[in-house]
Nucleic acid binder design. Structure first.
Length: 455
RNA sequence: GACCCCUUCGUCUAGUGGCCUAGGACUCCAGGUUUUCAUCCUGGCAACACGGGUUCGAGUCCCGUAGGGGUCGCCA
């Protein structure tokens, strides 16, 4: 049996001390319920980062003891989410349901040693459950993030480890499985701090070496309360649906409660792995800032290889039920590529390229189109475009400039109506490349339609 | 209520006793670039929760106060 002082009383940073002694191994132990909370996912990210930084291993344990919710689909969703974020796992996954026998045997052993006892707790008549006896000594551990934590013996109570129906309770299963998987560092949410005192007692009773613990602050909403479904976007899937990139969310979440110590924010995986330490983690709660996430996502979007961007755009189109000629679509994507902040921006931004039923922005029509002279301008523009030998970016650009010059109209008085006539809105890609992609036929047709409809 | 923990700009953070008249990023505002929008550039607004100590010197150390959070299940 190894005494706790081995872990807690040697001065210096335990994680570094062990680096040379044993390989670091961290874990992610989610319940597969179909949705992973971002707080949990951030914990997974920190575990992953820490393991990679230390040259150790990161393993997965699926806590699937809730039979009703732990469906194959839910497990797959969990794996997909991890894959999306690029959290690669070492070794085989451990499914907790396969461990029940071992859990129960351990409980039996504790019973035999007198470290646990049976009782009908509270006299509820549910039958006897197995209760772990707290040792009656003060407990101290050094949290990798929060520092030294102490709990007095009188403030700790015995707790149930096997229910009267014979199933093991979380505390027992969790500790036993961490031992089984050789976990050296348990990095988890703040809500487990109190459990840690119990778990340490269990490790001792089981004669196992106590791992290092580190507790991450919670992610909270604007009111400072734990971030929940009510606050929206509480699950990893929500972010994927909103068009965020896995790499961007990873980077954002990594920085929510940790910083490399310098001014870097948009960082590569390698840079984050290199810089990550628990000592640099924050010990106070953090709020998600969607604006900053969106900004960061935009940074990642711009760096995305063209092929990847196009693949995502095609997928988005398909998802929206838009059928498009691939060649034409590719040209359209090129036009909007650098203006997109999230994948979800794509469809609303390209709608008018693929349909003649696009909407006209009312305000734009009123302010820019329904003015004296615009009919003439558009008619003239149409004639010019029709007469062009080649209809492309350069030729439309030149033609329009010439027209502006000879007519004495301002650029705004020509460009704005032209843009609205062909796209319905005032903002968008540069006008001339856009005209080229749309093609002469569409452009002229749309100008005609605009005149009939509004002027 | 008991026991633990937390507290720097609106938000994420840098800061480990002098380099801090507190730095960066996002947001917001103003100007410029782009004769659209987005981008980009420049500038600006904006914080050490409060009160006591310790010290020549405190955002940094100590003690209180206030506020916030977590936990107190045969949930995980």
């Amino acid at each position: 049996m190894i005494e706790p002082r081995d872990v807690n009383e040697i001065p210096g940073d335990a994680s570094q001390r062990r680096r040379h002694v044993m390989k670091v191994r961290t874990r992610f132990a989610p319940s597969p319920t179909g949705n992973v909370h971002i707080g949990n996912m951030r914990a997974a990210i920190y575990n992953w980062l820490f393991a990679r930084h230390m040259g150790g291993e990161f393993v997965l344990r699926v806590e699937d003891t809730d039979i009703e919710r732990s469906t194959p689909e839910a497990i797959q969703a969990l794996l997909d989410a991890m894959d999306w974020l690029g959290l690669d796992v070492d070794g085989e996954h451990l499914y907790q349901t396969t461990r029940q026998k071992a859990h129960l045997e351990a409980a039996e052993m504790l019973l035999e040693k007198g470290l646990a006892y049976k009782e009908d707790k509270g006299g509820t008549g549910q039958g006897e459950c197995v209760i772990f006896r707290m040792p009656g000594t003060d407990t101290t551990f050094v949290d990798g993030i929060k520092g030294e934590m102490t709990k007095k013996a009188e403030n700790m109570q015995d707790f149930v480890i096997v229910r009267s129906n014979g199933t093991p309770v979380f505390h027992l299963a969790n500790v036993l499985d961490d031992i089984e998987q050789g976990i050296t560092h348990v990095i988890r949410g703040d809500d487990h701090v109190e459990n840690t005192f119990r778990h340490i007692a269990l490790y001792k009773a089981l004669g196992a070496e106590i791992p290092n613990f580190a507790h991450l602050p919670m992610i909270v909403n604007k009111q400072g309360k734990p971030y929940s479904k009510r606050d929206g976007d509480a699950f990893v899937g929500d972010f994927r649906d909103k068009g965020f990139l896995g790499d961007a969310l990873f980077n954002y979440l990594a920085l929510l409660g940790w910083s490399p110590g310098d001014d870097r924010e948009v960082m590569t995986r390698e840079e984050m792995v290199e810089a990550f330490t628990l000592e640099r983690c924050q010990s106070s709660a953090a709020q998600v800032d969607m604006k900053k996430l969106t900004w960061m996502n935009g940074e990642y979007m711009m760096k995305l290889p063209v092929e990847e961007f196009n693949a995502m755009a095609f997928q988005a189109l398909e998802g929206a039920g838009i059928e498009a000629d691939p060649e034409y679509a590719l040209q359209v994507f090129g036009l909007i590529r650098e203006r997109v902040k999230t994948v979800a921006d794509i469809v609303p931004m390209v709608g008018y390229f693929f349909s003649e039923e696009f909407e006209y922005d009312e305000k734009a029509v009123r302010k820019k189109l329904q003015k004296d002279g615009v009919v003439d301008t558009l008619n003239r523009l149409k004639e010019i475009f029709q007469s062009l030998e080649v209809f492309d970016e350069a030729s439309t650009d030149k033609a329009l400039h010439d027209f502006v010059e000879e007519s004495g109209l301002g650029f705004g008085a020509v460009m704005a109506p032209a843009r609205i006539a062909v796209s319905g809105i005032q903002s968008g890609p540069e006008l001339f490349p856009m005209l080229e992609v749309l093609g002469r036929e569409r452009v002229i047709e749309r100008i005609d339609r605009t005149i009939v409809k509004f002027l």
